[in-house]
């Protein structure tokens, strides 16, 4: 009897916490498709707000994807070889480098954004292009890629596989392509999902780095929260959810698969 009471109490509490997290999302989704949120759902269901958001903010959404995939490209090209180098090299220098590239996870985005602005703000062309935002996203997401790949290296004994391929006559570059990258794939995929998800949702840095011509999806969101009617802001949030939730689900599935191994 006492056990059942404790169980019921904990379940109730957990449901309450879940409601706290889920109810606002449901509110937001319903507001995004309601004709008039103030009057409630009986005022009718509509896609007009979603269409309006698309007309207003398609550019922002497109730029966000451009930046997310450019960030992914850079973190792949720079981060995957670096993860291999850091793992194989080991030693103090590697630890220091790893520590430094992980710092952007500890330092608030606002500080990094200010630093970038104060250093490169004067280079007009660079400052006004989306590449400026890209640098911030790369700095912020790089540790996720590097660590995700390094985690795989630590678990598959990549060093011996590398030596095995070398003993068979493969040059360093051939080994990297034939053995290192294929075996790092789970980490590369997990890291990629993480990088794209974080880049699509990044606001702290981006708000500081953007210009009127380089607005991203979350910047547009903040705009709409400040200046648009609730239905439009909700519809915009709905579009964001539709983009980000599949990525989150994929990431979660990946994490579970990794745990089972």
């Amino acid at each position: 009897m006492r056990d059942r009471l404790i169980f019921a109490g904990q379940l109730g509490f957990t449901l309450l916490v879940a409601a706290f997290l889920v109810v606002p999302v449901v509110l937001s989704i319903s507001a995004g498709v309601t004709v008039n949120y103030f009057r409630g759902i009986q005022s009718g269901v509509t896609l007009q707000w979603v269409v309006q958001v698309w007309n207003l903010y398609a550019g922002e959404i497109g730029l966000s994807f451009l930046i997310a995939f450019a960030t992914l490209a850079v973190t792949l090209i720079v981060g995957v070889p670096a993860a291999y180098g850091l793992h194989v090299k080991g030693g103090r220098l590697s630890r220091v480098i790893e520590e430094i590239i992980t710092l952007p996870l500890a330092i608030p985005g606002l500080a990094i954004a200010l630093a970038l602005l104060l250093t490169y703000g004067g280079f007009g062309g660079f400052r006004q292009s989306w590449l400026f935002i890209l640098t911030g996203h790369v700095v912020f997401t790089m540790p996720f890629m590097v660590r995700s790949v390094m985690a795989v290296f630590a678990s598959v004994d990549i060093k011996t596989l590398d030596e095995g391929a070398a003993s068979l006559g493969a040059s360093p570059w051939t080994r990297f392509c034939n053995v290192i990258v294929p075996n790092a794939m789970p980490g590369i995929l997990a890291g990629s999902l993480m990088v794209v998800t974080l880049s699509l949702g990044e606001f702290n840095l981006t708000w500081m780095l953007h210009t009127p011509l380089t607005k991203t999806l979350p910047v547009g969101l903040a705009d709409s929260y400040a200046s648009m009617r609730l239905e439009v802001a909700s519809a915009y949030t709905l579009i964001f959810f539709i983009m980000i939730v599949p990525l989150l689900v994929a990431m979660q599935m990946f994490a579970e698969k990794g745990e089972k191994k």
Binding site: D157, T160, E163, G164, A166, S167, L168, A170, P172
Partner: peptide, 16 residues
């Protein structure tokens, strides 16, 4: 090693 033309069997086998 990649140019010594050796064959090596590792303790952990190092199979790809």
């Amino acid at each position: 090693i990649e140019q010594r033309h050796v064959g090596m069997v590792f303790q952990s086998y190092a199979l790809f």
